[in-house]
Design a protein around this nucleic acid. Structure first.
Length: 211
DNA sequence: ACGATGATGAAC
DNA sequence: TTCATCATCGTA
């Protein structure tokens, strides 16, 4: 199976396009592997966790009232105003780290929030699919929610502003999974009622559905 | 339905 | 310097 690290070029495109294309791609997290009985699955004493992305949300441009960028550049959201391909990580509700990947060109603030993923790919095998709380496809390893995802992968604000490549120990791969449009659903984003009737209803949430 | 929990940004 | 808010989650 081919494994191609998604280059920066993948992310320097419009947010909605990147969001759709991230479904079925893999988020790879690399950890140092302590020596001992447990043989490292990766190379050179490193162990990798690969999650297939099943749900994302786009935050697109300075006019998007649901986006942190809608009120201009601040220290927190500065990375959103840079070029695509860098992580934007922030603390939400005092205890949950939200993982985003910045998209688009420099000076156009946009990012994709990674909401859900699965770890043993029932979608591919066609077994044991069920829906999680947000309507996204999950399986027994439920990473259904942005806070759960970062907690599982041990991602915190130290990843903020880092590039999505191997130097960060966190990157994306295309592992050859093709997701037909028929398997993708769009819906309003979650938890953005504050954005008002127009922007809170935009179908900027993308997720995989069964069949 | 609600409380935990702390950074953020806007007001003062 | 305060204070309301918040791209959530687990328990009820």
């Amino acid at each position: 199976m081919k494994r191609k690290i998604l280059p920066q070029k993948f992310f320097t495109r419009p947010a909605l396009q990147v969001a759709r294309d991230l479904l079925g791609k893999f988020l790879i997290r690399e950890f140092p592997s302590p020596g001992g009985v447990d043989a490292p699955r990766g190379r050179g004493g490193l162990k990798q966790i690969a999650l297939m992305i099943t749900e994302v949300e786009a935050y697109d441009g300075p006019r998007d009232k649901a986006s942190h960028a809608s009120r201009g550049e601040t220290r927190r959201n500065a990375i959103m105003f840079g070029a695509g391909g860098y992580f934007y990580v922030y603390l939400c509700y005092g205890m949950y780290e939200m993982l985003n990947i910045v998209t688009g060109a420099k000076d156009y603030p946009a990012a994709i929030l990674l909401r859900s993923a699965i770890i043993n790919f029932p979608l591919i095998r066609g077994v044991d699919c069920r829906r999680g709380r947000t309507g996204c496809v999950t399986d027994n390893m439920v990473l259904d929610g942005p806070g759960k995802l970062t907690r599982f992968l041990k991602i915190d604000h130290s990843f903020n502003k880092k590039p999505a490549d191997k130097s960060t120990s966190l990157w994306f791969e295309d592992r050859g999974v093709k997701i037909p449009d028929k398997m993708i659903r769009r819906a309003p984003r979650i938890g953005v009622a504050y954005a008002g009737p127009i922007w809170s209803k935009k179908k900027y949430r993308f997720f995989l559905t069964k069949t």
